[in-house]
């Protein structure tokens, strides 16, 4: 499903501010698993997620997603692959403030040949499922943190992805909202999707939903718990 082979990501290579954000990481996540990347701030979790999420290419090493090598793919194909197979929930929600909830959720479908009607129907179904249908024409600014989180989730699911990636999903949520989020993760797993979460929130990594935990320190993988 997802396999990293000796993956390294270096930023600003050859310059004084060179950073090795991910160092020689090899890991494998099976289909339908809930995986957690755990580690302190700056340990390279987000960077590794961008590589798995096909948002960046590694400096060296190989990344396979859904059986396809994506580490050497040109940008446009990488983007297309991400658009078709991966849903991302960002560290800071990353909603577009000027747009309504519905428009935010359908934004990933704009550069595809999905007719607007169909896109809206899909978005509405997701919003209903996340109990947000009544907020569909609200602007993002008018939402609470938990609602924003759920909009971000709806948006990540709009392309019906096989893989859902979440970066610090509970960082801005209180305990009950975090529990709600984990319920959503459970339903995603029941649908057979693979979920990868970067977090240092015990509430998440101690949950029994989690199949595998990867521990990261300074960009390296230091332990795997199953």
């Amino acid at each position: 499903m997802i396999r990293c082979e000796r993956v390294t990501k270096v930023f600003n290579r050859g310059r004084p501010n060179e950073v090795v954000a991910v160092r020689d990481v090899t890991l494998e996540i099976a289909s339908g698993e809930v995986a957690v990347l755990r580690g302190p701030s700056g340990s390279g979790k987000t960077t590794l997620l961008t590589l798995i999420a096909c948002a960046a290419r590694p400096t060296s090493g190989r990344v396979f997603v859904l059986g396809k090598e994506v580490s050497r793919l040109p940008e446009s194909f990488l983007t297309r692959f991400r658009r078709e197979h991966i849903g991302i929930i960002f560290q800071q929600f990353n909603l577009i403030p000027g747009l309504t909830v519905l428009e935010n959720v359908t934004a990933p479908l704009v550069p595809t040949s999905t007719p607007p009607k169909e896109a809206e129907e899909r978005a509405l179904r997701l919003l209903e499922r996340l109990n947000l249908a009544h907020r569909r024409s609200f602007r993002v600014r008018e939402l609470s943190g938990g609602e924003m989180q759920r909009v971000a989730i709806a948006r990540a699911l709009i392309n019906n992805p096989e893989i859902v990636i979440a970066d610090e999903p509970t960082a801005h949520l209180d305990t009950s909202l975090a529990a709600e989020f984990l319920e959503i993760v459970r339903s995603l797993r029941e649908e057979g999707r693979t979920v990868v979460i970067a977090t240092h929130d015990p509430l998440v990594y101690e949950h029994r939903l989690v199949d595998v935990i990867f521990d990261m320190r300074d960009g390296s993988l230091v332990g795997v718990e199953r």
Partner: peptide, 13 residues
């Protein structure tokens, strides 16, 4: 071809 370097990314853009 086949390189994943930042420069290659720049050229793709």
């Amino acid at each position: 071809p086949g390189s994943a370097s930042e420069e290659q990314l720049e050229l793709e853009k």
